[in-house]
């Protein structure tokens, strides 16, 4: 358990490379318990790569990532990851409740079945994303937004100290987006740190304490007001940034 002084996640001049190709350079910053950081940048900027590096699935070439005071691999049981729902098999014979229960497997351990407590935790997690009434429905029969919520519930059931979300709002309806945001806010209130990659600058602005602006290397790391500025966005996106109504920013490629 990290003390209040110790951040949950620290990037110390992190560089990630695939073979001889540099995917991401010089990411530097930290995220504390109860805070969320938005990874913002164009497609191919390295957002997913950074998430994989936090999970320890991609080696860090230079610098270091510290998760809960240890290495990424050592802290994995306290880290939950929410993949994009559309990568999963729609025909798979498993209920929504069954998917959420998978979040308990790591703490249940090998060779043992999930017990009553695990099932209660899973049911509670499904309730937090507003899908308690769909528990018995097959995962593949749910809408895209609902599937994303079930996967978030699975992460909640893991009771993580650090939550990683990879583009959770892509193609998600408004009701599901609100439910996702509410559930993430509750996790933060309970003391978890959150990393979320997103294209939605407005969402990053209102729901995250920190923004990490990326495109192959870091263009800014800090509060939204300091990072989501026209100048930095223009630099990161290489396109035009317009300021409308004071703080809404629209970015387009030239």
């Amino acid at each position: 358990m990290p003390s209040n002084n110790e951040p949950t996640l620290v990037f110390d001049r992190v560089t990630v490379a695939y073979g001889s190709v540099l995917a991401l350079q010089d990411v530097h910053g930290e995220v504390r318990a109860g805070e969320a950081v938005a990874l913002v940048g164009p497609n191919g900027a390295g957002k997913s790569t950074l998430i994989k590096a936090i999970l320890g699935l991609v080696p860090v070439a230079r610098g270091a990532i510290t998760v809960l005071g240890g290495s990424p691999a050592a802290s994995r049981s306290k880290v939950a990851y929410v993949p994009q729902a559309d990568t999963l098999d729609e025909d798979f014979p498993i209920s929504a409740a069954g998917v959420v229960l998978m979040g308990r497997y790591r703490s249940v351990g090998w060779l043992r079945r999930p017990g009553r407590t695990d099932k209660a935790i899973a049911a509670d997690a499904l309730d937090q994303v507003g899908l308690a009434d769909r528990a018995k429905d097959r995962f593949g029969t749910l809408s895209g937004g609902q599937r994303q919520r079930v996967l978030l519930a699975r992460a909640i059931a893991q009771q993580p100290k650090l939550l990683l979300l990879d583009e959770p709002f892509n193609g998600v309806d408004a009701v599901s987006q609100d439910a996702l945001l509410a559930a993430v806010a509750k996790l933060k209130a309970d003391g978890a740190a959150v990393v979320v990659s997103t294209h939605d600058l407005a969402l990053a602005h209102v729901s995250c304490e920190e923004v990490c602006l990326l495109n192959k290397h870091q263009f800014g790391f800090g509060p939204p007001d300091a990072t989501l500025t026209p100048e930095l966005l223009q630099a990161a996106y290489g396109g035009q940034a317009l300021e409308l109504h004071g703080d809404h920013v629209i970015v387009s490629r030239p």
Partner: peptide, 17 residues
């Protein structure tokens, strides 16, 4: 349970360690 997990979501399982 591990075999079903892996069949359903190998990426998520890898992330879980």
């Amino acid at each position: 349970k591990e075999l079903v997990f892996g069949a359903f979501d190998s990426g998520g399982m890898r992330a879980a360690g």
